[in-house]
Design a protein around this nucleic acid. Sequence first.
DNA 1: AGCACGCCGACT
DNA 2: GTCGGCGTGCTC
Length: 820
Amino acid sequence: MFETNDIYVDVLLPLALPQIYTYFVPETLHQLIEVGKRVEVQFGKSRIYAGIVSAVHQNLKLAYVPKAVISVMDEKPIVEQLQLNFWKWIANYYQCTEGEVMQAALPAAFKLSSETKVILNPAFSEDASVLTDNEFMVHEALTLQGELSVKEIQSILDIKSTYRIIKSLINKQVITLQEELQYKYKPKFEYYVQLHPDLNDDTLDEAVLTLKRAKKQEQLLIDFLGLCDELGTERLKRSYLVKQTGSTTTLVNALVKKNIFVISEEQTNRLDVDPNETLIEYKFSEQQLKAYDNLKNSVAEKQVTLLHGITSSGKTQLYLKMMQQVIEQGGQVLYLLPEIALTAQIIRRLRLALSCKTGIYHSKYNDNERIELWRDVKLGEIGVIVGARSSVFLPFKNLKLIIVDEAHDSSYKQFDPAPRYNARDAAIKLSTMCKAKVILGSATPSVENYYKAEHSVFGLVELKERYGGVKAPEIEIIDIKEAARKKQMHTHFSHQLIKVIKTTLDQNEQVILFQNRRGYTPALVCNSCGFVPRCVQCDVSLTYHKFINELLCHQCGYRKRLSQTCVRCGETETRIRNFGTEKIEEDLQNLLPGVKIARMDIDTVKRKEGHSKLIAAFEQQEIDILVGTQMVAKGLDFENVTLVGIINADQLLRFPDFRAGERAFQLMTQVSGRAGRRKKQGKVLIQTYQPEDEIFLWVIQNDYETLFETELSDRKAFNYPPFCRLMHIQLRHKNVEIADKASIYLADILKAYFKNRLNGPSVPIISYIRNFYLREIMLKLPIRSTELKGEKDYIQRCIHQLKSQADYRSVIVKLDVDPM
DNA sequence: AGCACGCCGACT
DNA sequence: GTCGGCGTGCTC
C-alpha cells in the first residue's frame, strides 16, 4: 500500500503557532510512536520541546526535509484522540492556536522545554587575556558555578542581547552549549516501615540480640515496636517513625539491610477520607424529591439540564444523588466549581458522601499532585473530579456526567492568557463528545442559559423552596441619600445598619459585610490642589493600602511608598475619596471597639492557606464580623450568620456593561443567601443612593423571572446575547497615534461586512495599561454555528490585512469570544 | 514564544 | 570601529 516505510508525525508544540509541524520518525522509534504521546523534538536552531503527536502518517510529499524525533517520552499516550479533538474545537471556537490550548490543558510538569545551558569547554586553555570584559565575567561565573542558563547570563551582565557574547565565546572555544529537557515530574511516595514478614516472636528476639553492638539500631527497633503497640498498627510511616524517635533514615535502612524491617512504598494519597468523620443522615424534602425526579427525567432526555434552585434549597444534595447513580454504573463525574468556591468545607462534604475516589484539581495543587490525578483519571481510577475551570481538560476515560455549579459565575471564563475559554460552555461541548450529560446549577442563571431552558434547548428543573423550612431572609433597602440628609450616617454606615449590627452581635450571632472593592480607598486626594496620585504605566489612580502604607496599582501591581506631602503642591493634608474593604474594616473597628472584625479580599487571602484559615476562624466564631469583597458571596456556608450588609449597592448598578443588571441581581442574591442558612431567618440590609431602582424589588421578592423578562427584552431591543454572540477585539500599542489609527483601520474594513453589528472603535475606561494604549472593537456574531465559522475567518483575514500594513505590524490584537 | 539576522545610533 | 537596542521573519 505504501511505497516506503518512512513514518512521519504531526507534532503539536506548546507555542502560539498557527501551524502544526511534521517530524520524521527514525526506525528505532517506530514501535513506540503513537498519537497522544509526548515526543522530544528540536524546534528552531536550539530549542527542544516536548510536543504531542497529533497524527501519524506516511506523507511523502513534503516540501522540506523534516527533522527527526529525538525520543518518545511516554510509554502510554497522555491524551486520547478525544482530547485532541476537544482542543481543536476550543482553538477554533475561541480563536486561538492549538498550542495555546495545549498550554492551558496540560499540567506544567508535562510541558517540558529546554533551557540552553552554557558550560565551560574543557579544551579551553585558561588564557583569559583574549577575552573582553563581559566575556571574562561569563568565564568567571562559569568557573564558579559550572553551568549557566542564558537568562542567568543576561542578569549577570545586565544586558539583553547575550547572543553576540555567547557566539564569541564559542568561537574562542571557551564554552559549549548544552540542550537538555528537564523532566519535572517526580512521583511522590510515602514510605512505610514494617517488620520483615519472616520474623516471628522467636526470630525477632534473635534479631534483637544481633543488634547488641548497634545501640542506636536496637533503640530504634524497640521504639518502633512501642509505637506500633501504642497505635495498634503493624506499620508506620517512615517519616513519622524518624521524627518520633529522633533517628535517621539511614538507621532505618540499616535495619532493612539486616532483614528486620521492610519498606513498602505507596503513592501519597490525598484522597483518603478521615475515618473519624461520619456522614450526617440527610433527609430529602418533598420538594427535593420532586425536583430529583424531574432532574433524573430531564437528564435522561436532554443533553443539558438547567437546575434553577434558589439559595439554600439544597442543590448540592441533588448533585450528590445524581453523582452516586453515575458512579454505581462505573461512570466518571466532573463537578465544576468556581475557583473561589473550592473550599475545604465543600470538598470534605463531598468525600464523606461519595463512595468512590474523589480527586481535586485546581491551580493551588502542585505539579506532582496534578500529574498523579491526571494519570488516575486516565486509568479510570477516580470516579469524581472536583475542579475549577481547567479540569475540563482532564483525560476522562468514561465521563458520563458534568455538573457545573454556580453556572452563571464569571470565573469560568478565562481572561488571560489565551485560550479565553468558558469552561461551562466548553463542558457542554465536551459532553457531546463524551456522550455525557450536563447539569448547570444556579440560583441566578445567566440570561443566556435561562433563555435556552425556556425554549427547551436545555431541560429545566426548578427548586423554589429553601431546605428545612427556613424562611428566605428579610431584605431591607436603606436610602443613604436620605440618611445623609438627615445626618443619620456615620462614615459609610447608616445608623440603622449600625443598630442592627449591634443587636445581631448582642445575640451572639455573626455578620458579613460586603463591599465590592479592595484596598483602603481607591484614591487619595490632596486637600489643597486636588492632586490624585496615578500609576506611572496605567491610566488609573493608585489605591492606598494602609496596612503596608503604600499606593498600589490594581491593574499592573505597580507600588509606591506614600510620600508625606503632596507631590504637586507640598500640602500635607490628604482627603479620602471613595472607600474599600480596608477602610470599612477600620471605620467599623472605630465604631465598634472590642468587636472582632476580619477582612477577606485578595490581599488578605493571597498568602497560602490564608483563605481556609480565615474561614475556619469565622466558623469557630473567633471573628464577629467579616468584611469582604465578592469572595464572601460565594459558596460559604456559615450557620451562625444572620445579618448581611451591603455597604454600597450603587457600584454594582453603575457598571457600564450590558450585563450590569444581571450581575447586580446575581451578586445581591448570592450575598443575601449567606444570611440565616439554618435555623433562623436572616436579615439583609442594602445601602444605596438610588433605592428607587426596581432591581431592588426583584432582589427582595427573589423574583428572578421578572428580572429575566426585563433583561431579555432589553437584550432583544439592542441585539445582545442571547440574540447574538459577542466578540471583543482589543488593540494595543505603545504609541497612541498608532493605536488610534490601527483601530480605525481595522474597524473600517470590518464594518464593510458587519455594518451595524460593529461597535467602536472605542477607548476603554482604562485606556492605558503597562505603557500600552488600548483600543477596542465589539462585534456581534450570529448564533448559528454554520454562519459563525465563516465570519470568524473573515475577522482573521481582516486582522491579517491590518498586520500587513507596515505601520500596524507591531500592534497587538487580542480576540475574546463570548466575553464576560 | 524564542532566536537569528540585519540595521542603526552611541560611545571607547 | 564595536557594542548593544530594536524590528522582522522563521521555526517542520
